[in-house]
Design a protein around this nucleic acid. Structure first.
Length: 696
DNA sequence: GATCCTCGAGTTCT
DNA sequence: CTCGAGGATC
């Protein structure tokens, strides 16, 4: 580098100063200088960097304005999963939580750290040698999206950690959100410029963070609060969560000032009540409060259940409610012909969105709540997502409001409607004659988890079915550009995309194909079991279903006998698939029409004809491997561990022999562990087992 | 026969 | 997410 030293030093000094002011302003809410002075410093740095472009580094404050758009986000695998919290909706559930914690720790009056639960987006920030290097969204908890350029534009996220004791590597977890007042100002601006306004701060924050063009993100008033760490190296972690948050604050990260240490259920409830009362005066939206066991050692001891920590819980505020009018009760027809009554509502803003529809599930539900067209009802968003009619306000019922009746013929096709004795739902008997069912069947066939045909959405399916262009899934494979031409929103480009997507979906694995057929009772899981059992489409089609039911019963009886005697069990046939489901599949395959469609699909190469495995052998990375479990595993029950192993074709047996491949040992293992060591059989702990299951 | 668990189906809005 | 049905288990 031929840069003269003084210039470099000058740039460094300016950056440090600007960052300090950023922190004073955005993190501590206590600016030291006025805006004009800040702007002056900023421009000076910009000037300097323009003259010496080689000085520009991604961690310069000037780079917070964003950079060139990305083609797409990269995937980001979290080092440790970003789990979600269990929810409590009532005081009872909080009491139960505290009780579990006390029992787990064998103590009373546990100390917790309580803080508001932000209604924003969870993200993770990685700092190496104190420098912000990478940030990602939570995603599904295991894999998120790398949104580093966007996060760089958020001024309350420090580009450098400060102070003594900056760790070599640290992963900070927290929430990106928008203050209400910033949100309103931004929306006003958007509207003035004729752009679309966001519906609530949360959506605005989410939309802003997922911009591929970080220059747009830079113009959105996003904020950040840190509340946990995922990983730290090269520094001693504190002993409590409260100290951890203080530490993060010391490193220059914004941490919520409303956090507080409290003790016992009483302390928790007091904090909850206080936050509920102060909710409106906080600058940001919260949807509840979070309680975490304060001692980190105790947190570690409590561990995790399935997908959530046992040491923390989110205590949610009651779902927001609003009253509105039921304009009508209409009936929708689903894929299986199920008739679902839906309340069409006068649009009402509740829980951050405008709600216009709410499902009423079935006739029993309508009767139980006694909802009628014209009624005024209380609406809320159950679990903060799906709107539901909570109750009717009877005093507001208009005179002459009539009870809802399920139609006796299908509103879509006029076929007779039936309700089976054993079921709560009414069904249209029209089958694929009913256009609604045909449309749903096609949408299901094309859906992501089935054949995954991109671009085949509702609009297109409506046109294809209404126009008589496609009648069955097989028809999709005969679609050419010619047939698509002339449809709405189907110019050449879209049309060729659809044709390409259909081509791409061909040779689908058997399980997906069976699922795609949309056989009643056959979802993703059952489809997998069937595919694994038969191994090929030909065998699936030729199956002797009566014999299968008989064989299944025989194995079950035999296993009942053996269980009583504590003998090794036979491998169950079609685990999770009982007589009802088998009957349903057999019925489906008996219909000549269905056979015909399947043959046509076969002919167009929709499904892979490859044999999955040699007959009788279960599929999976662990197939042929045998496992023995001993002792108590920290998180998995015996059955869970067994299921996980079997899911990948492994076998769990009772005793260790030379034929055993692995022994999985937990706490207080029995003699089996000793025997395993004797025979030199590899021993895994739970983590090792999970790694093996995941890695394969 | 009772009970627990898992899976399937339907649903909302952006 | 929630409800209901089917399956496994005791």
């Amino acid at each position: 580098m031929a840069v003269p030293r003084p210039v470099e030093a000058q740039a460094r000094k300016l950056r440090a100063e600007i960052e300090r002011h950023n922190r004073q302003y955005y993190v501590l809410d206590a600016p030291l200088v006025n805006d004009a002075e800040y702007d002056r410093l900023f421009r000076e740095l910009q000037e300097l960097e323009r003259e010496h472009p080689e000085l520009v580094s991604p961690d310069s404050p000037t780079q917070r304005v964003g950079g060139a758009p990305l083609p797409q986000f990269e995937q980001f695998a979290h080092h440790t999963p970003m789990l979600s919290l269990n929810n409590a909706f009532s005081a009872d559930e909080v009491v139960a939580f505290d009780k579990r914690v006390c029992e787990g720790l064998k103590t009373v009056n546990v100390e917790y750290l309580a803080e508001p639960k932000f209604d924003g987006l969870a993200i993770s920030l990685t700092y190496e040698q104190g420098k912000f290097t990478q940030g990602a969204t939570r995603g599904d908890g295991y894999t998120g999206e790398d949104v580093t350029p966007n996060l760089r534009t958020i001024k309350s996220i420090p580009l450098h950690l400060q102070g003594a004791g900056v760790p070599r590597l640290i992963e900070i977890r927290g929430e990106v959100l928008m203050y209400r007042r910033d949100f309103e100002r931004m929306n006003e601006r958007q509207r003035e410029q004729g752009e679309k306004a966001f519906v609530n701060p949360r959506n605005a924050a989410a939309g802003s963070l997922r911009q591929l063009d970080s220059r747009i993100t830079a113009r959105r008033p996003l904020r950040f609060f840190a509340y946990a760490i995922g990983l730290v190296e090269g520094a001693a972690a504190p002993a409590t969560h409260a100290e951890l948050e203080n530490w993060m604050e010391g490193l220059g990260l914004p941490v919520c000032p409303e956090r507080r240490r409290v003790s016992g259920v009483q302390g928790l409830m007091q904090f909850y009540d206080e936050m509920a009362a102060r909710r409106e005066e906080l600058p940001y939206d919260i949807d509840g409060v979070v309680y975490k066991v304060n001692s980190l050692a105790a947190q570690a001891r409590l561990g995790y259940v399935a997908r959530a920590p046992r040491f923390a819980i989110a205590h949610k505020f009651p779902a927001e409610e609003a009253s509105t009018e039921v304009q009508a009760i209409e009936v929708q027809v689903g894929r299986t012909g199920a008739l679902t009554p839906v309340a069409r509502l006068k649009p009402v803003f509740v829980g951050g969105v405008t709600v216009t529809n709410a499902t009423l599930h079935n006739l029993d539900q309508v009767r139980a709540k006694d909802v009628r067209a014209g009624d005024t009802v209380i609406v809320r968003r159950a679990g903060d997502v799906i709107p539901e009619v909570a109750r009717v306000l009877p005093e507001k019922r208009p005179r002459g409001a009539v009870e809802f009746q399920m139609p006796s013929v299908c509103p879509e096709c006029g076929s007779k409607v039936e309700r089976l004795e054993s079921e709560a739902v009414h069904r249209c008997t029209g089958g694929l004659f009913c256009p609604a069912q045909r449309k749903q069947a096609l949408l299901h066939f094309a859906s992501r988890r089935a054949m995954d045909i991109e671009g085949l959405g509702e609009k297109l399916v409506d046109q294809l079915v209404d126009g008589g262009i496609v009648h069955t899934p097989a028809g999709l494979y005969r679609l050419g550009l010619a047939k698509l031409a002339g449809l709405e929103r189907m110019a050449e480009k879209s049309a060729s995309n659809v044709v390409a997507a259909i081509e791409k979906s061909k040779r689908a694995p058997l399980a997906r194909f069976i699922f795609a057929l949309g056989i009643y009772h056959v979802g993703e899981e059952v489809a997998k079991v069937l595919a694994r059992h038969f191994g090929s489409l030909a065998k699936f089609l030729d199956a002797d279903w009566d014999a299968l039911i008989a064989e299944k019963e025989r194995v079950q009886k035999e296993n009942t006998r053996r269980r009583n005697k504590d003998e090794t069990l036979l491998a169950p046939i079609l685990h999770g698939v009982g007589p009802e489901i088998i009957q349903s599949v057999a019925n489906f395959l008996r219909q000549p029409h269905n056979r015909e469609v399947i043959e046509q699909l076969r002919a167009s190469g929709a499904v892979s004809e490859e044999e999955i495995l040699p007959p009788g052998e279960p599929e999976g990375a662990l197939s042929g491997k045998s496992f023995v479990l001993t002792g108590t595993l920290p998180d998995l029950s015996r059955d869970e561990a067994k299921a996980l192993i079997e899911a990948q074709g492994g076998k769990v047996v009772g005793s260790v022999s030379t034929k055993t491949d692995y022994v999985v040992a937990g706490a207080e293992p029995g003699s089996k562990l000793a025997r395993a060591k004797e025979l030199g059989i590899p021993v895994l702990d739970e983590a090792g087992l999970l790694r093996m299951l995941k890695g394969s």
